[in-house]
Design a protein around this nucleic acid. Structure first.
Lengths: 200, 200
DNA sequence: AAAATTATGTAGTGATCGATACATAAACAA
DNA sequence: TTGTTTATGTATCGATCACTACATAATTTT
């Protein structure tokens, strides 16, 4: 059955993308409905009719972020030939993505609600779950590398995963503070310099 | 001349300490005056008469934080016998301080206003300045280590300082996400594992 | 055509935000 | 005592928060 009633006067995906950028830049709480509707080019009733609530809009924005902005960083972890190459790519892609110029600096998942005790607990929990998923992704990749013989059985995969995820999170703060792409790349190189010491 | 007029009915330092914990836990924007006055045990007019404004109270809270909570992490950087010992202490003390149990997890300077684009730009700038001061402190210590012969002249002191500060910032996110002291200590050990590779 | 359905713009809702006016209380100075 | 000064509690300020009631516009169905 085709759509009935008056057709929507704006592009849903484009409006969501605009909302994502507002949340990315200002965080969940600091992004007011006035900010959102202005950036999206619509009025509040259209926002609520289309997305349900500010929180529901945020969750959709997070999914869009993970699908679009985050994929270039994390999607190659499974397919990279080695765990070392996978993690090196994560850090290199992070340095590049966080200083792209046409997008806000740093990671929305890290920066949008770090207090963990704001007005909305579900928002904090969703972001925390995404952060921890990245850690688990790295840990699984490292464990696979042990199974495949790339790394010795004595490797502390959980510690390594926590370490590299910590560096990647810290890079969000550095990026927001204005660190250049070269600086972020140097940080990534320093982090990778511990590879041989950590895997022997 | 002694004080005139009605004496203050509460302890200024204690009230400031309570306010610091609220800002530390909830961040600047999410800490409402109702939250602050409730924690401080005073009413709004007393807060304004004593501290001036929410922003001024926050700045005082930051100074108190740096003076009390941050000192155990950073104060030994200059006095440590080697740059390596200094940075190892920073990371070790961070793992301990961020999981103390009786204080909020993670660093107030990192977590209190990371969006860098909230309601108040001066709040963000003040926190950013404190973050960068720590990076400069490490960089100066590393440069001194080069001069003293601990590190080779080829050492990229700025890159190393950025790297270790990045790890320290990332540990705030991990701590807020619930990482144990052992996990944070393991992260610190992984970060230090790159020392020999980075200084040769 | 008329009815049904969905979207939009205007104009507001009560709640909460940071901040204050004002009268009163509690101290010292005269 | 009387006056001065500072602090406190009550009760609020205008602004902004997320959100929505309602009438109207724009489309499909009958």
């Amino acid at each position: 059955m085709p759509q009935r009633g008056r057709p929507r006067g704006f592009d849903r995906e484009e409006a969501l993308r605009r909302a994502m950028e507002v949340f990315w830049t200002q965080g969940y709480d600091n992004a007011s409905l006035a900010d959102l509707t202005r950036a999206m080019g619509i009025n509040a009733p259209s926002l609520y009719a289309t997305f349900g609530s500010k929180e529901a809009l945020f969750h959709e924005a997070v999914e869009l972020y993970v699908r679009t902005e985050g994929s270039g960083i994390w999607e190659q972890v499974e397919t990279a030939p080695t765990a070392r190459a996978a993690i090196a790519h994560v850090l290199r892609a992070t340095a590049e993505a966080f200083t792209r110029g046409d997008t806000p600096r740093g990671c929305m998942i890290v920066l949008a609600a770090p207090q963990m005790q704001g007005a909305n607990a579900q928002v904090c929990d969703a972001l925390k779950a995404h952060r921890q998923a990245n850690g688990c992704l790295l840990e699984r990749r490292l464990k696979r590398a042990v199974e495949e013989g790339e790394l010795p059985a004595s490797t502390d995969c959980r510690a390594l995963a926590s370490y590299f995820v910590t560096v990647q999170h810290g890079m969000s703060i550095q990026a927001r503070d204005g660190a250049s792409r070269e600086t972020l790349q140097a940080i990534a190189d320093c982090a990778m310099a511990s590879w041989s010491a950590l895997t022997s």
